[in-house]
Lab assay of single mutants.
Amino acid sequence: RHRTTFSPVQLEQLESAFGRNQYPDIWARESLARDTGLSEARIQVWFQNRRAKQRK
């Protein structure tokens, strides 16, 4: 699998969602996937990585 590159618009949507809830449930992730055009799995990994980045 190649590395996913996120567009500025996608990142804005993801960061906005992260600001509201750092642990989105499956319904929120699937909604974000539809809105961004990404797969739910990529959304899930993005949130995992974003939480790890915040802990540093």
Results as ranks from 00 to 15, higher is better:
Asp35Val: 11
Thr5Met: 08
Leu14Ile: 02
Arg42Asn: 12
Glu30Arg: 12
Val45Ile: 15
Asn21Gln: 14
Val45Trp: 11
Asp35Asn: 08
Phe18Ala: 00
Asn21Tyr: 06
Arg50Leu: 01
His2Lys: 14
Ala41Asn: 08
Glu40Trp: 03
Ala33Gly: 06
Gln10Phe: 00
Arg50Met: 06
Asn49Trp: 12
Thr36Arg: 01
Gln54Thr: 12
Arg55Leu: 14
Phe47Gln: 00
Glu12Gly: 09
Glu40Lys: 09
Gly19Val: 13
Leu14Val: 01
Glu15Thr: 05
Asp25His: 06
Ala28Tyr: 06
Asp35Ile: 14
Trp27Gly: 14
Gln54Leu: 13
Arg20Asp: 07
Gln44Ile: 13
Leu32Asp: 01
Thr36His: 01
Ile26Arg: 13
Ile26Met: 13
Phe47Lys: 00
Glu30Met: 07
Arg1Pro: 14
Val45Ser: 11
Ser16Asp: 10
Gln13Val: 14
Pro24Asp: 04
Lys56Gln: 15
Tyr23Phe: 05
Asp35Tyr: 08
Lys56Arg: 09
Ala33Trp: 02
Arg1Ile: 14
Glu12Trp: 05
Trp27Gln: 15
Phe47Leu: 04
His2Trp: 02
His2Tyr: 08
Arg55Trp: 15
Leu14Arg: 01
Phe47Ser: 01
Phe6Asp: 10
Leu38Glu: 03
Asp25Gln: 04
Glu30Ile: 12
Phe6Ala: 06
Arg42Tyr: 07
Gln13Tyr: 14
Ala28Cys: 08
Ala52Asn: 04
Leu11Gln: 12
Leu32Thr: 00
His2Val: 12
Arg34Leu: 12
Asp25Asn: 09
Phe6Lys: 05
Thr4Trp: 10
Phe47Trp: 06
Ala41Gln: 13
Thr4Ser: 12
Glu12Pro: 01
Arg55Thr: 09
Ser7Glu: 04
Arg20Glu: 08
Leu32Trp: 02
Arg1Val: 09
Asp25Leu: 02
Asn21Arg: 02
Gly19Trp: 08
Ala33Ser: 10
Thr4Pro: 05
Thr36Met: 11
Ala28Trp: 05
Pro8Val: 11
Phe18Gly: 01
Asn49Gly: 09
Val45Gln: 14
Asn49Tyr: 05
Leu38Gly: 01
Arg42Ser: 15
Lys53Tyr: 09
Lys53Leu: 14
Trp46Val: 02
Gln22Leu: 03
Ala52Trp: 09
